[in-house]
């Protein structure tokens, strides 16, 4: 099939997984439950990439999101988690404003989606594979690549400086 295969049933399963886990992040009262739900949501997104024939992105998603970011977030939760059960309530004052806003954003995006002319599926699946992708990354997009590595270095230094405990008496 041109434009890559589309398996409706696999798509439905993956979409349901991602959406249910995503909703879990929002509705769970205990933040640790939300974090676990988030990990499963990231895993579902990785399956979505695999379904879209983007193997490299799927692998990086599992490595970075499911592996690294989840661990960092869970560490932060365990460092800060505390009492104050009353504050973890799902329906608070902000929800009254947040829900219509989120629905409005969904409506606008859906309207754009419906009216936009996406057109037909492309002639061939433009899926270059890992080899071509890495060639592209280190050839044509080498400047963004170096820029991103600079951003990562800056983020690392910034995180260390921010989270460092102040020396006593200095």
């Amino acid at each position: 099939m041109p434009g890559g295969d589309f398996h409706p049933w696999l798509f439905v399963i993956v979409a349901a997984w991602v959406l249910v886990c995503g909703l879990g992040v929002v509705v769970f009262k205990k933040i640790m439950y939300s974090a676990v739900s988030m990990v499963f949501c990231f895993l579902g997104v990785a399956f979505a990439y695999a379904l879209l024939n983007a193997e490299l992105v799927a692998i990086v998603q599992i490595l970075v999101y499911v592996g690294a970011i989840s661990i960092v977030i869970i560490f932060a939760i365990m460092l800060t988690e505390m009492q104050e059960g009353g504050y973890a309530l799902f329906f608070n004052r902000q929800a009254v404003f947040a829900a219509p806003l989120a629905v409005a954003v969904a409506a606008v995006l859906t309207a754009v989606l419906v009216t936009a002319d996406i057109g037909d599926v492309g002639e061939k699946a433009l899926n270059p594979g890992v080899k071509a992708l890495s060639r592209l990354l280190f050839d044509r997009y080498v400047f963004p690549f170096e820029l991103v590595s600079l951003v990562l270095l800056a983020a690392m230094i910034g995180a260390i400086v921010l989270a460092r405990r102040e020396e006593e008496g200095s």
């Binding site: 434009g3 890559g4 024939n53 057109g119 492309g122 433009l126 592209l136």
Partner: peptide, 8 residues
């Protein structure tokens, strides 16, 4: 994936 036109 489905629209393409930008090799990756």
């Amino acid at each position: 994936q489905f629209r393409g036109g930008s090799e990756g």
